[in-house]
Simulated assay, not measured.
Amino acid sequence: MASHHLNFTKAALLKAPPAAKGRDYYYDEREKGLVMAVTGTGTKTFYLYKRIEGRPERLMLGRFPDMTVEQARKRAVTAKGEIATGANPQKERRAIRDEMTFGDLFSEYLEKYSKVHKRSWQYDEREVNRFLSRWFKRKISSFDRVEIERLHAKIGKENGTTQANRLLERIRSIFNKAIEWGWQGNNPAVGIKKFKEKSRDRFLQPDELPRFFEALANEPNETARDFFMISLLTGARKSNTLAMRWRDINFSTATWRIEETKNGEAQTIHLPAQAIEILTARKLASESPWVFEGSGTSGHLADPKKAWKRILTEAGIEDLRIHDLRRTLGSYQAATGANGYIIGKSLGHKSQQSTAIYARLNLDPVRESVNKATDAMFGYVGASIDE
């Protein structure tokens, strides 16, 4: 066993070799008590060494490099804060070691992690209950990799490879949290390869646009009809458009401010003339804070699948999803000369390479690009009528 003191960086910790005997310990010079232990097989784990209720305790934080140095430091600070207030994180972790059922673990995962950190936590709740409810009474140590692989293959065959991959990610995340919270077992989903997913590039083609607009005009559900049109004209994500609020719309500047998008940042969306016309009409008749009012618990429109199916059937269009309306706007922006940065800005995309450039863009070139794209789409309708 050897011990080392150094300033933790990713590069330095990656160089740490497997322990020759037992475990080697590396102590962070920046965050007191933060330690990385390295086993003979090369497994690297962050711990916090701290006295709790008068006795020295070793609190497991997570595995490196899945947990970054900065994440480990932040978690160590958080744990120290809990200890300072009289809490004992080890008691909670020992409860995990006492062999929870998968159902109990998922409840913990949902309340302590998913609902706190994920905007899409409802999908975790829905999909786990749909596919894994038969596991709820089983001890978490009873699962092995072969069983998870078989389930992944079965879901892939019956429900599609994308569905199977998302479920595998959820299972892996749930067991990772159990380990982070003190369970000493191995994650049975680690090492299982996901199915290759084909990148989807579907959008409304020029010959489909006239049929789509005609079917949309004939849709009896006015709220759903306007929702689909606004989705197409703004390219916004479905969840953001469903939850669109009047207070976020500025009719003077023709903009819509989304306070928090999927990437965790705010976004300002240009509203072309066609969108302003729709929204103005809805505003005059609305008494709700939501643009697309609904009768559900959220107060706004839920996923309008039935209306979408009616529109596609009448238009004779196949294999088109609501999300493809977002891709349609981007495609027609590209067709009318917009570059990738402008399209990314208008759709709220985020990447390390383009973030700096996005920050320097104002809304004017985005506005021009969206206007050109929407005019081009409606131009196909006019061309069809002339023919």
Rank of each mutant, 00 (worst) to 15 (best):
357 I>S: 15
193 K>N: 07
198 K>P: 07
225 R>F: 08
147 E>W: 13
129 N>S: 13
127 E>K: 12
88 N>V: 03
292 F>G: 01
156 G>Q: 07
91 K>F: 13
86 G>C: 00
89 P>F: 13
93 R>T: 02
21 K>H: 15
44 K>R: 11
289 P>G: 10
217 A>H: 09
285 A>E: 07
41 T>E: 08
28 D>K: 03
280 T>A: 14
311 I>K: 07
318 E>V: 06
69 V>Q: 00
259 E>L: 11
163 Q>D: 07
232 L>G: 02
339 N>S: 14
142 S>C: 03
116 V>Q: 07
237 R>Q: 03
80 K>V: 01
291 V>T: 03
111 E>W: 08
114 S>Q: 11
240 N>G: 05
271 L>W: 03
205 Q>A: 05
169 E>G: 15
228 F>P: 04
147 E>R: 07
278 I>P: 03
110 L>A: 03
86 G>Y: 00
342 I>F: 08
53 E>H: 13
149 E>Y: 12
218 N>L: 14
11 A>S: 15
363 L>G: 13
202 R>V: 05
182 G>P: 05
171 I>K: 04
180 E>K: 11
83 I>P: 00
274 Q>S: 12
19 A>N: 01
349 H>P: 02
122 Q>I: 06
119 R>V: 08
2 A>Q: 14
187 N>G: 07
131 F>L: 08
214 E>A: 08
213 F>D: 01
195 F>Q: 04
1 M>E: 09
22 G>I: 15
313 T>A: 10
366 V>F: 05
361 L>E: 12
114 S>D: 09
159 N>T: 11
12 A>W: 14
307 A>K: 03
122 Q>N: 06
375 D>R: 12
369 S>P: 09
249 I>Y: 02
292 F>C: 01
138 R>W: 00
258 I>W: 05
126 R>C: 10
98 D>T: 11
231 S>N: 12
372 K>H: 05
128 V>L: 08
319 D>R: 10
89 P>D: 03
382 G>R: 07
293 E>W: 08
214 E>Y: 15
246 W>T: 03
233 L>M: 11
182 G>Y: 10
275 A>H: 08
56 P>Y: 02
154 K>D: 10
345 K>Q: 05
292 F>L: 00
268 T>E: 06
25 Y>A: 07
331 S>H: 06
62 G>V: 08
52 I>H: 04
209 L>C: 05
171 I>M: 02
126 R>I: 03
230 I>V: 15
262 K>D: 01
189 A>W: 15
291 V>D: 06
124 D>V: 10
68 T>D: 00
194 K>E: 10
156 G>D: 04
245 R>F: 05
205 Q>P: 15
140 I>F: 01
69 V>D: 00
100 M>Y: 11
93 R>H: 11
7 N>S: 07
56 P>I: 01
250 N>M: 14
72 A>S: 02
77 V>F: 13
171 I>Q: 04
202 R>D: 05
296 G>N: 06
